[in-house]
């Protein structure tokens, strides 16, 4: 892994990968949108509102996936002092926050017609809201220090502490009584959801993942350039 952690090598590598991930994002999302909106049946109970699921569930998966990735990067950043690991967490945070926001709002838009309420303070919804605040808190913390290294270190600690929230979100539907339905895809004994709905779900999830990789690579490139500018200004200021 250390070979890829060199920023100059990363810039070359990411330039080679980016066209592929960008292309995959476009194709997967176009196909995903088509089968989500047109190519899949409406639910016999929920009617067309089931189509909200193809946005809501992949966004929820991504909100956790991105967070776990950031926490792993935070651990690497703290232990091995990897500049790229710190930058990854910083670059991924707004994307993770965006997915969490999409998850929360689409959940609300789905809950309003199906549950009869926009919001309830139950375990699943509250723990996801906490995840959203963890993202926002991390972004605020990283930018709160004059010294960027102190900022990322404080942010990394927050990410590692906040990881306890991840299993709480995942198992909240099993541990507590909640209005939210239990898992129907990632569960012991295989998915209980019908294939005609599982396929659009998975295609959208892959599309979101490709989107995440593309945007994070772009953001990492920007962060590396930004660091370079900082060092150049610093060496100039020191004469």
């Amino acid at each position: 892994m250390h070979r890829f952690a060199n920023p100059a090598r990363f810039q070359r590598l990411s330039a080679a990968i980016l066209p592929w991930t960008a292309g995959a994002t476009v194709i997967l999302l176009i196909v995903g949108l088509y089968i989500s909106l047109i190519g899949s049946p409406r639910d016999y109970q929920q009617g067309d509102t089931v189509r909200i699921m193809y946005i809501h569930v992949p966004a929820a998966w991504m909100s956790l996936f991105v967070y776990v990735n950031m926490a792993i990067a935070a651990a690497c950043g703290l232990v091995w002092k990897h500049p790229l690991a710190d930058l990854f967490a910083k670059a991924a945070a707004p994307v993770g926050a965006g997915f969490t926001l999409i998850c929360l709002v689409t959940g609300s838009l789905w809950g309003a017609p199906m549950w009869g309420t926009w919001w309830v303070w139950d375990a699943r919804l509250t723990s996801v809201l906490i995840l959203f605040f963890l993202y926002l808190g991390y972004m605020a913390l990283v930018n709160a220090f004059d010294d960027p290294q102190r900022g990322t270190r404080a942010g990394n600690v927050l990410l590692l502490v906040g990881i306890v929230n991840v299993p709480i979100i995942k198992f909240s539907v099993d541990w507590w009584n909640t209005l939210h339905q239990p898992a129907s895809v990632i569960r012991m004994g295989g998915p209980t959801i019908d294939g005609s709905m599982l396929v659009p779900l998975l295609v959208m999830a892959l599309g979101f993942t490709a989107y995440f990789i593309t945007v994070v690579l772009l953001r990492l490139r920007a962060e590396i350039v930004q660091r370079k500018i900082q060092t150049m200004r610093l060496t100039e200021a020191q004469g």
Partner: peptide, 10 residues
């Protein structure tokens, strides 16, 4: 209203 605002927001 619910379905299209979900997709629009995303």
């Amino acid at each position: 209203a619910y379905v299209w605002s979900s997709y629009a927001l995303a």
